[in-house]
């Protein structure tokens, strides 16, 4: 669905217990279904409606999105460092297609 791979910012390292910021961006028009195209016909709704972030398999954050989220959805949120491992991010659109990316973190 996305033309460019999603981008995420996760620190490469963190101290155990530290709370740090994560930022994510994905390219997507977030078509609302309320807009008309040049032919006068309504452009069908096509949005990303779900976003999840897990850390070593445990959910940190999930978002259920509607049409009022801007094009190219952006999320910034926090996580607490526990163990070294992987953050996984997933975006799912109205067709049920999912785009994923991941980042590793070393916790000392």
């Amino acid at each position: 669905m996305a033309t460019k791979p999603p981008r995420v910012k996760v620190p490469k390292t963190a101290k155990k217990g530290e709370v740090f910021e994560i930022k994510t961006l994905i390219t997507h028009p977030m078509e609302t279904g309320n807009r008309k195209g040049k032919d006068g016909k309504k452009i069908p709704r096509m949005i990303i409606n779900k976003f999840t972030c897990t850390y070593n398999g445990n959910e940190i954050l999930r978002a259920d999105m509607n049409t009022s989220i801007s094009a190219n959805p952006y999320f910034a949120f926090y996580a607490r460092a526990t163990d070294s491992g992987t953050f996984e991010f997933a975006w799912t659109d109205d067709n049920g297609k999912t785009v994923k990316t991941s980042k590793n973190i070393a916790v000392s």
Binding site: S68, I69, Y74, F77, Y78, A79
Partner: peptide
């Protein structure tokens, strides 16, 4: 949002592992 076609914008579901309830996004 009171003035948009659909009132619901986004719902976030968190766990204690977030460490901090502080979320940013961009809306129409």
């Amino acid at each position: 949002a009171e003035g948009n076609p659909t009132p619901e914008v986004v719902s976030f579901y968190l766990t204690p592992a977030a460490g901090k309830a502080d979320i940013s996004t961009r809306m129409r």
